[in-house]
Write a protein that binds this DNA or RNA. Structure first.
Lengths: 288, 288
DNA sequence: ATACAAATTGACTAATTAGTCATATCGTAT
DNA sequence: ATACGATATGACTAATTAGTCAATTTGTAT
């Protein structure tokens, strides 16, 4: 990432945190970061593209800080304690990002942002669940969803407190406190029926996934149509290859936009495919 | 409240929940509620005034639904269970409001909204604390802040779940489950030192109050700069008077916006003061 | 029916916005 | 020094916005 991109992202974060996304203009961002409006558009395709870059930039950063401890050889509880500590610290370090995030939780302007946020939330849940399973074993198993929810609740409540007053609290003490609270919860769960049963949650996530992957379904239809059009054309070989790459990319859990964009651009000089190309570009929020 | 005001509020809530506050235009709100733009301004002074009306309308509604149970003669635990149930139900009933709230956490654009939100959050904390004190007595006393935080965390995590899938869960069961989890936490807290001690929290709330007046500090700097610029000018007398009035108004606990606005407008015809004027106007959300 | 006030309208203004593009400056290789 | 591509600029456009106001409709009292 270029130095200026970083400068823009940091200026934007700062402004978004205080004013919110929709209320912050590009003009303000470029003034804050000391560049011109024209230059902004050299680095980011649009205002939305900047938002996505910000989200990815920080999520990556946070994730890396947690993964550091993945390869240390520690007992599960100590490992999780380290990771939770890293999570708290990184979030406090990037205060503005968290405030922005909590201010406009999701900012679902376009599908890409929605999907990104949904995936990240799901990943966080799974991270909690895996850690709890490793610590408490099968006694926790039927309660993993509930435990993850409650842990997430603890985390959110206390991060809020820390954001107001970083110095006042020792993160490592807080993490140990939270883990002991989880111990209490585990004790109390003996003989309890879970609220968020695996069955219910699977059902819920199916529904939600279906909602978020609705586009995916749409795209598949579009690709089928394109296949038909292409098959009726001469020298269709190149198009077929592009289409196959496109299809396999879209089916991945985290499709890489540049690949999609590149493949779409291969259809540029074929007017018959224009509408299809544009339809896909729209869904992925790619510039046409 | 007039029927039309209600119609406007409900249309606005609906749109804010899906599009966010800043991204929703007055035009959309009046189209949705079937009135004209002119009529909107008969009922609400401005877009911000509508937001405040919405917040007050729903907070009142929620509060009333909880207070119903205040005068029933029940043991504290049963009473709190009923109140928590009412809280969950009312929030689900007014889904859109909660989504709006969580989407742009109240959009602290202007001081009035910020203060309102801060107060409401504080009140919620105190409600939890009082209920917990009534249920668990002095054993809970040193842990009331922590317990309230954790309870709030539970509430937030589970309300999120309910918003996705209302039908899948029985609220009364959930509330009993949460209360039993609080029992476990109480058990585990024997011999524990609280994280959020009364001392720290008192300190924090003092600071937080100061935080809400942080702008005040920025403005003071701006005023100092203005003073210097003015002192180097001819016929500076009028400007000095305006500046003094401005300064004393800002230092009041609840500065009156019209006074500030009026004084600022006195600097209108002096280009050298433009940036300063705009900076102050921005902080107070005054039209430039 | 008439008069008059209250309620309502939507075309209008001035300001602001995201994004574009012709022009200018910079850096570097020869 | 020259040339040339990369980087950067900010005036510009077209669209959208909150808020206004003269003109019209509606309601009511006599």
């Amino acid at each position: 990432m270029k130095e200026k991109e970083k400068a823009i992202i940091e200026a934007a974060i700062k402004l978004y945190a205080t004013k919110g996304f929709a209320a912050t203009s590009i003009q303000e961002i470029v003034s804050e970061s000391g560049i011109s409006k024209g230059a902004f558009y050299l680095y980011f395709k649009s205002k939305d593209a900047l938002l996505i870059a910000i989200l990815e930039y920080y999520f990556d950063h946070i994730q890396k800080n947690i993964e550091i401890h993945d390869h240390e050889n520690l007992p599960p509880r100590e490992k999780f304690a380290k990771q939770l500590t890293a999570l708290f610290s990184t979030m406090i370090e990037h205060k503005e990002f968290i405030i922005m995030q909590s201010r406009e939780q999701a900012i679902p302007l376009n599908e890409e942002v929605k999907t990104l946020m949904f995936r990240k939330h799901y990943e966080a849940q799974k991270f909690y669940q895996n850690s709890l399973r490793a610590i408490y074993g099968e006694i926790a198993e039927p309660h993993l969803w509930d435990l993850a929810f409650m842990l997430e609740g603890f985390f959110n409540s206390y991060i809020r407190l820390l954001l107001f007053n970083e110095e006042g609290f020792r993160i490592s003490e807080l993490v140990e406190y939270i883990l002991r609270r989880m111990d209490s919860l585990i004790d109390g769960l003996k003989g309890e029926e879970p609220i968020a049963t695996e069955e219910k949650m699977e059902d819920l996530f199916k529904k939600t996934k279906a909602f978020f992957l609705a586009n995916n379904h749409d795209i598949k239809l579009v690709i089928e149509k394109m296949k038909k059009v292409i098959s009726g054309m001469e020298n269709s070989e190149d198009f077929n290859i592009s289409l196959e790459v496109l299809q396999s990319e879209i089916e991945k859990e985290t499709p890489r936009l540049p690949v999609i964009q590149g493949m779409l651009s291969n259809f540029r000089n074929e007017p018959k495919l224009d509408t299809y190309r544009e339809e896909i570009a729209k869904i992925y929020n790619i510039k046409r």
